Structure formats: C-alpha cells, structure tokens
Amino acid sequence: MNSDNLIKANNLLRKKLTSENQKYYEDLLTYIRGKSTFNREKDVEQLLLEILHDLIDAQNNGQNAEDYFGKNPQTLADEILQTLPKSFFETFKLACYILIGYVLLFATPNIVLPTSNLDFGKLIILGTISFVFSLVVLWLIGQETYQKNKLMHSVGLALGGRS
C-alpha cells in the first residue's frame, strides 16, 4: 500500500474514534508527522495506522487513549520516532520538490518577459533557503502540538497551526 492509500485509510478509520480519543490521536499524528521530515513517509504512515488500529481495539475494550498509551504522548511519539530509520532519499526528494516549486514560481515571470535576466545561482540559493525555512515550519508545527509555552503556541498558530 502506498502512502496516499495509508493516509486515506487513516482518515477513514479516525472517524471511529470518540472525540476524546480522536483529539489524543490527532495530536500524536500531528507531532509525529511534523517531526518525521527525515523519515520515509510510508514507514511513518504505516506506523500511524498501526497505532490507530491499536487505539480502536483499546476503545472497543473500554479503554481511552490516555489509559492505553499513557498520559505523556510526546514521550511516546519521541520513542516511536527514534525507532524509525532515517531516509536521505526522502529528505532529498522533499528538498527537490521545494526547490523546483520555488524555481517554477519565481522563474516563470523571468521566462515570460524576454527583457528580464534569469539568475540560476540566485534561484538555487533562495530555493535552498526556502527548503530550510520549510523544515523549520514543519519542526515548529510538531513542537506546537504539545507546547505549554504560550509564546511558542502563538508562533505555531501564526504559522498555520491549529488552535
């Protein structure tokens, strides 16, 4: 099963959770996805689906997510992330997507206008900066999930996080 199918299955199965368990799981999911930038997407999504199946089984047996997984989901998520292998290829692929997207977005006006100059060096440097910025945003989204600090929570919300 590819990553897209795993995500679709995850989205469908999440509807079976109670609202309390769904909040717990979605926070866990957001944290893991935000922190798993250097892991293979398929591995992460398979793991999240396994966790969801375990949670649904526990819920069917009368347990809630806190009783089953514990009261500190951030620690659980960090332990889970340590077990996943790092993938240079996935990181490289993400960098290429961001770089190509940046180049297409900002080179198009230069290509359309014949009198403007196209500086590939500048595009590559700024594309690389965009990649680093994207990694920081993903890291902040992951950090914001279990953040108690109101300043970090506000920064996460400003960058598009949830309330």
Rank of each mutant, 00 (worst) to 15 (best):
L28M: 15
E41P: 04
N10S: 06
E26N: 13
K8W: 02
F38Y: 12
E26H: 07
R14H: 00
Q22C: 11
Q22R: 14
Y24V: 04
D27L: 02
Y31E: 08
T30G: 11
N39W: 00
I32Q: 09
I32H: 10
N10I: 02
I32V: 15
F38D: 02
E26R: 11
S19E: 14
V44I: 15
I7A: 02
L17C: 03
Y31M: 05
R33G: 03
G34M: 10
N21G: 08
K15D: 02
L13I: 05
K15W: 01
V44L: 12
L28Y: 13
N10E: 03
K8Y: 05
T18N: 14
G34A: 12
T18W: 05
S19Q: 12
K8M: 03
D43Y: 00
N39K: 15
S36N: 09
L28T: 09
Y24M: 05
L28F: 14
D43G: 01
L12M: 11
S19T: 13
Y25A: 03
G34D: 08
N21F: 04
S36T: 09
R40V: 07
Y31T: 03
K42C: 09
N11D: 13
L12W: 04
K15E: 08
N10H: 03
I32W: 07
T18Q: 06
K8D: 08
D27V: 00
Y24Q: 03
K35V: 05
S19W: 03
L13M: 14
F38H: 08
E45Y: 13
N11G: 06
E20P: 01
N11Q: 12
E45Q: 15
K35F: 11
N39E: 07
Y31D: 08
L12C: 04
S19R: 10
N10R: 10
N39V: 00
A9R: 07
A9C: 01
A9N: 10
K15P: 00
K42Y: 11
L28A: 13
